[in-house]
Design a protein around this nucleic acid. Structure first.
Lengths: 353, 353
DNA sequence: CCTCCGCATGTTAGCGTTAACATTGCCTGC
DNA sequence: GCAGGCAATGTTAACGCTAACATGCGGAGG
């Protein structure tokens, strides 16, 4: 034993503790279990991590000792030693709006099966806290990362690359991903919606759009497509993100104020669209007679508004699930051929158009 | 230098590494930064954690070195050394149903300000995975814990107590909490709802109740209160949790099948209640003429169903926020006088009753 | 009967950080 | 002019675990 210990420190008085000495913490550790089981700490570690390498009898003894001591492993220490933390971090703007909640749910469910835990970061709208959050999260050395959107600061991108872990960027495919991506084309959503409404015969258009990165891509593409189709003079209202029903009511009020009393309105979210429906009802406008409404998201209530809402459906559970699969495949050492998955979208036609 | 290093190991051939030696990891560490800045690792650590104890000039130099190296601290190592991880874990049954999402949102938002990160565990319905989850989560040595419900297995309670960290149990106040609690009385919700409907003059009653721990307390208390009020023969339907709209439609169908064509129905959730409203409409029943409906949760859509839903409102953001405050107070070393907070509830009377 | 192999277990050192002291130099006060 | 104190920085060991080797032992093969 070459290290100096308190007991063989002859130069200091009996009770003085050596440099670096700390009070005992009183928590049960591997070696406590080992002592009780009459084996080495390493054997206990093996019982926990690769029991098949330990004799059945020994496993039994050790398991009993673990139970008796109430030992709870310390994954900080384990992670430090192995550089594998069994942690996956996810950053989403917000979780209370249910659109990302579904995603996180399926992601977490899948990862939990594989023994991974979820570190959750909420970056807010706009992703103001993202940079700091990425830093804080990388400090915990997660094994993989789930991000929302593909636009990050240069600094963030550098850090993310430097982390050398699987990274899935979701919801968007417009920028070249850092590593992997699961999402769909927001530009195509805008274009297809415009075309859909045009094909249905509408000739007057409006948009109530959130000032969110991805929402912007959608309604700008919608506007651009309408221009291509020869439609000029599209009324547009913007609202901050996250959106809610009241912003929708308010939005329709503003549109009416601008003289938009007839035509089709593309809303950035189902919540906005729902607000528009209610405001229309309150004002005695007929839907889709006077105005037609398209939402985005196909949240649970969309099928049950009155009239039922035409909207764009995204399989948000699939986003989480597929992201989990990509991550797990990579963590299992497999090479992922398709690093970008387009989950697509569907325009669900109901009564509001 | 008393420790044996590869270079002074004379007994082994030139290139053989000693026992325990590992390949270098190539990540930037504190001492890399220290070397570049020409100070000791400890000084760098101080710059990061308590810069006020370091000379301004040194801070400057070190900060530059940190930036130049792209150093990302390792909180696993830090946490191991300090036993403080700046991690708070939360376990909720599910997050996609928006009721707990709101809670987690406000909790995370508040904790993030204080520099804590969120470790999220989803235990499912019924809390099947709770025990394993608690174990996995405690392995990460969180500084505090946020739990849903107050009923945990004996094993779990022991482990939780043993963790010696602040624990907030939420949504329920019916059992004696392990440590702290933020919630309300589900029994009182059931009782007050029954009384409310009785006072409104209804004399025939039904319930569509989820088989969830807390929901059960509500509808059992509702049934018990009705019995006290002299009402016998209450029709009751149970559904698995988590509930959805379709279960509500189905539930009303079953009630009608049992001959319940008139009276008041207490539903375990707004989703169920919404389903009931839609099924009633589909079947040409008038609400509240034929049947009256009360939901639970006051989710965003509740005010906008047709007819608008009478329901029980819980301030779910408050649950998260108050839990965060309790946790932060305790982590700041303050003694918390009120360890149990009743956030109460409100019966919101709308058109469906 | 000896060698060799492979299984079960042990030993050592290191993962990257920080607590707890130690040290150094400078300034204050008498 | 010197003790004493404080401010800034350094040194050591420890946190609890596991990778990478080392060791010991029993049995198969010659």
């Amino acid at each position: 034993m070459s290290r100096q210990r308190a007991k063989d420190s002859a130069t200091s008085p009996e009770n003085a503790s050596p440099r670096g000495a700390r009070p005992s913490r009183g928590t049960v550790t591997l070696s406590d279990v080992a002592k009780l089981a009459g084996v080495s700490a390493m054997t206990v570690s093996r019982v926990l991590n690769r029991p098949e390498t330990v004799a059945a009898e020994t496993v039994e003894t050790v398991r009993k000792a673990i139970a008796r001591t109430g030992y709870v492993p310390n994954l900080l220490a384990g992670g430090l030693a192995t550089t594998r933390t069994k942690l996956v971090a996810a950053i989403v703007p917000t979780i209370s709006g249910s659109i990302f909640a579904a995603c996180i749910q399926s992601l977490t469910d899948r990862l939990e099966i594989a023994g991974y835990q979820m570190l959750l970061g909420l970056s807010g709208y706009p992703a103001a806290r993202e940079e700091g959050l990425i830093n804080a999260i990388l400090s915990r050395r997660p094994d993989a990362l789930f991000l929302t959107g593909t636009s990050h600061s240069a600094q963030s991108r550098r850090r993310l690359r430097g982390a050398k872990i699987p990274i899935v960027e979701t919801w968007d495919l417009s920028t070249r991903p850092i590593d992997m991506a699961v999402g769909f084309s927001h530009a195509r959503v805008g274009r297809d919606t415009a075309q859909f409404l045009f094909d249905k015969g509408y000739r007057r258009f409006a948009v109530i759009g959130a000032e969110d990165e991805r929402a912007k891509i959608r309604w700008r593409s919608y506007l651009a497509t309408l221009t291509e189709l020869g439609v000029t003079d599209v009324a547009s209202i913007t609202t901050p993100a996250p959106t809610n029903l009241w912003m929708g009511r308010d939005g329709l009020g503003k549109l009416l104020g601008e003289g938009f009393t007839q035509g089709a309105i593309f809303c950035s979210s189902d919540a906005l669209a729902h607000g528009v429906l209610l405001e229309a009802q309150a004002r005695g406008l007929s839907v889709p007679g006077d105005i037609a409404v398209v939402g985005f998201g196909d949240l649970d209530f969309a099928a049950f508004t009155v009239p039922a809402l035409t909207t764009v459906r995204i399989d948000r559970f699939a986003v989480g699930r597929l992201a989990a699969e990509l991550i797990l495949a990579r963590l299992a050492g497999e090479r992922v051929a398709e690093k970008t998955i387009d989950v697509g979208f569907q325009i669900i036609e109901r009564e509001s158009t």
